[in-house]
Nucleic acid binder design. Sequence first.
DNA 1: CATATGTCCTGAGAGC
DNA 2: TGCTCTCAGGACATAT
Length: 270
Amino acid sequence: MLRGVAGAVGGRIQEVLRPKVKVGGFTFKPAFPLFRRRATGQTITAARRLGKRVVLELERGDCMVLEPRMTGLILPGDPPNRSHLRMVLRLAGAALAEICFWDQRGLGVASLLRAEEFAALLGPEHLGPDALEITLTELRARLSTSRREIKVALLDQRVLAGVGNLYASEILHRARLGPKLPCSAISPAQWRRLHVAMLDILNEAVRLEGSTLADGAYRVSRERTGGYQTCHQVYQRAGQPCRRCGRGEITRIVQAQRSTFFCPVCQRGP
DNA sequence: CATATGTCCTGAGAGC
DNA sequence: TGCTCTCAGGACATAT
């Protein structure tokens, strides 16, 4: 997602377009007229990832924060269709002529924040260390006294930023930890396994450019799907045999209103 | 304070 | 065929 829009750096936002669509959802903050007025004419000085968000830094210290959430795509080119295209940035003076924000379900958000708003809304109180950078010590310090179930805690972006529901299941399977294990019951050796598993899973998923699921909404571009879905060991494999132990049957449970998939044989714990 | 639950959104698929 | 119901999961508001 970020890779795709790196070519926007140095570009001046000539136009902010909101295509007319029949579907609902999708939020501009502030409301679109002001969003457009404040973004138009500004130059993009940097593009970076912040947890699950893409941040376009603008001159004058403003930030455009793009949150794709479930079915949003931030693309350097054509979207999968026009019926869910939510925003287009037309650029001048960059390698990229435009950025498209496409979002099927409309849970996505585009925000234009002043430096102080950005610090208040996305500061360390709201967003923990990045999952690819957090140390084992820091991970333990943040979770080891919590009574929450490890699967639920991994999804809390205040604890660490970047782990979503799909990867939480995959990480716990790799680490051989039961998803309902309370954080406070995790041993030092298990924390080490969890930390290594998290880095392995996330790095590989990034390398393969994410997972395109059955609905096909997530893609690298209009033409290209992600590559990680074929690596899934547990996610959406309920009823099928565990690929590691061959004995357990992958089981689906619900935790905090989200599906969790795990192997009851090779993932220990309650 | 920590933890848990409700809410939003669209489209696919199941069941009758 | 056409209806209702369930599921999918990000972040945030509200409740306990």
